[in-house]
Design a protein around this nucleic acid. Structure first.
Length: 114
DNA sequence: ACAGTGACAAGTC
DNA sequence: AGACTTGCCACTG
């Protein structure tokens, strides 16, 4: 693996925190993982995520709520389906962050501190 | 070393 | 609501 395994670990762990029925963004995950401004790295690292980890990758969207994959692609179609199964409305390839965006409580943030 | 690309983001117009 | 620009950083040729 070419990437830094420690950073990847933090990113994956952070993604795991996103609860079912809620969504988050690449930039936000990067921030929580202690990598502000590195949204692109989040997407890169997600590609290498082990299948066994069962990462909720479908809960991660662009900062504007849109699905990151090319509209109409197989991945995008699967992502919208997974989201709808969790009760998240996906209209025209995007989600209303004002409604489904994940707002982690202070306690949750402190909990992942180690 | 260097330029192009990408599961991104924020600012400007 | 677009389109364009800059800032990011890892990866690839």
């Amino acid at each position: 693996m070419a990437f830094d395994p420690e950073k990847a670990q933090r990113i994956w762990m952070t993604v795991q925190q996103v609860p079912c029925g809620k969504v988050s963004s690449y930039g936000f995950i990067a921030d929580l993982a202690g990598l502000p401004g590195r949204a692109r790295m989040v997407g890169k690292v997600m590609q290498y995520a082990p299948e066994a980890m069962a990462l909720p990758w479908h809960r991660i969207l662009k900062s504007n709520g849109q699905i990151a994959f090319q509209a109409g692609s197989e991945s995008a179609r699967l992502q919208t389906e997974l989201l709808r199964l969790e009760g998240v409305e996906v209209i025209n390839n995007r989600v209303r962050l004002s409604r489904y965006g994940w707002q982690p409580a202070l306690g949750e943030l402190l909990l992942m501190e180690f």
